[in-house]
């Protein structure tokens, strides 16, 4: 087998276990999109164009409560900022590649692909005697996740269209946020950010187009940064 293919398949193989966690999210997004009134083709297209699970779930939830374009855009713009951190972290490993490679790998740079690929870069040193093919490994990770995301979105769209509205299956989206919050709130700073954001969301509920949500998130950010600063000072 060609060494490039070996690297690619190794990436696919190491990314595979993470798909267990990705499939329910993709399906949930598809179901939520249908219940929020999104056309199926558009929901599927979003999985290819946006290709960011948390942001897509947030978009669906905001559409469901009738939010306007500006708050949805601002919230997803904030939520996806973390990809810049991944981009910076992985930059030194892909900087030498031709631009078409960098464009492709940037498109595939998601939480789950980053997590697996960066391990390969940090744990396995570049080989001395032959060319560094680790970008093929990264491509394997990214491609596996991309394929799972598209297929699970499609499965969710098909399933969501057959579930009656009375089942309240769209309630699974906020339930997912609750599950993620429980993990994120193990840190004191995460608690401050979440608590302030939740209270502020209620305090600014009357703002039009659900702009109150954006105000709440920004206030939560301020509270989180302030709480972690205070902790550092206290130390």
């Amino acid at each position: 087998m060609h060494p490039k293919l070996v690297e690619f398949l190794a990436g696919c193989r190491d990314e595979a276990p993470l798909q267990l966690g990705v499939v329910p999210f993709g399906m949930l997004y598809g179901i939520g999109a249908i219940q929020a009134g999104m056309p199926a083709w558009l929901a599927q297209l979003a999985s290819a164009v946006v290709f960011a699970g948390a942001a897509q779930l947030v978009i669906v939830q905001m559409l469901a409560v009738g939010a306007g374009a500006l708050p949805i855009g601002l919230t997803s713009g904030l939520l996806n900022l973390r990809h810049m951190l991944y981009s910076m972290s992985i930059a030194e490993h892909v900087r030498h590649l031709p631009r078409r490679w960098r464009l492709l790998l940037a498109y595939l740079l998601t939480d789950e692909a980053y997590a697996v690929a960066i391990l390969r870069y940090q744990v396995t040193p570049p080989p001395d005697d032959r060319p560094d093919l680790r970008h093929w490994y990264f491509l394997g990770c990214g491609f596996t996740l991309w394929l799972t995301w598209q297929l699970s979105t499609a499965a969710g769209l098909l399933f969501g269209a057959s579930v009656p509205a009375g089942w309240d299956i769209d309630f699974a989206v906020p339930l997912t946020f609750i599950a993620l919050l429980a993990m994120l709130m193990k840190e004191r700073a995460g608690q401050a950010a979440a608590l302030v954001a939740a209270l502020a969301a209620l305090a600014f509920a009357a703002l039009p187009y659900k702009l109150g949500l954006v105000v709440a998130i920004v206030l939560g950010l301020v509270a989180g940064v302030w709480a972690s600063r205070r902790r550092e000072v206290a130390r």
Partner: peptide, 18 residues
């Protein structure tokens, strides 16, 4: 520092709203 707080703040605001 900011990026660490974006997810908890967003999910909490959306859940409270819902």
């Amino acid at each position: 520092a900011l990026c660490r707080h974006i997810a908890p703040a967003s999910f909490a605001a959306l859940t409270a709203g819902e």
